[in-house]
Design a protein around this nucleic acid. Sequence first.
DNA 1: AGGCCGATGGCCT
DNA 2: GGCCATCGGCCTT
Length: 222
Amino acid sequence: MTGTTAGMLGRGELADDVLTAAVRLLGCTIAADTPERTVAVRLVEVEAYRGADDPASHSFRGRTPRNGVMFGPAGHLYVYFVYGMHFCANITCLSDGEPGAVLLRAGEVVSDLASAHARRPSARRSVDLARGPARLASLLGLRREHNGVDVTDPASPVRLLAAPPVDPAQVRRGPRVGVAAAHELPWRFWLDGSPAVTQYRPGRGAPATGAGRRGLGTDLRS
DNA sequence: AGGCCGATGGCCT
DNA sequence: GGCCATCGGCCTT
């Protein structure tokens, strides 16, 4: 049994299933050491991906060099490169050998605002600093070399800080953004009312209507 | 506020 | 060769 350090989220809290893990991650903080200062973001929007039975998951067709981290233990960064220019970051879930991950889609900057704006000058408004998975990864400086980093290790350059579980009444859910496969699964979770939550965009073949705007999601209990 | 488009490279059929 | 778990700029309502 690995010990837990005060303030860190334990990997055990991500091991049972990807949906529970996704909700558990909402409200938690990701802190990353950048060349200048440590930048920290409070997660407000995430998406769950599961290996074996989720056609939208990178691990659906089995293990490859790219997705290998998804098959490892929970609590590690799975960073991938997409559209020839962007990185996106997940936190792995489930037990070793069982692929799963939660995509970090959006967050609000906790500290510090000045450094964050210096890192992403194109974001005119603070709310846009980590609004979107590639923006979030960019703000935290997450790149190829961070693939596999253990975010439950206090000595890591990227760390996952625990927060008390959020009030379920504040959590909303809806279809994942931009995925063509399994677009009917409501595996995107966000905190109601956060201005940093991204706008919903259907994937290829998914119905254009339905979730609306930000994704007028449903209550967690439904 | 919303739609379209170009950038740009790795991964998989 | 086609498809991306995207972003930012520019265009029209």
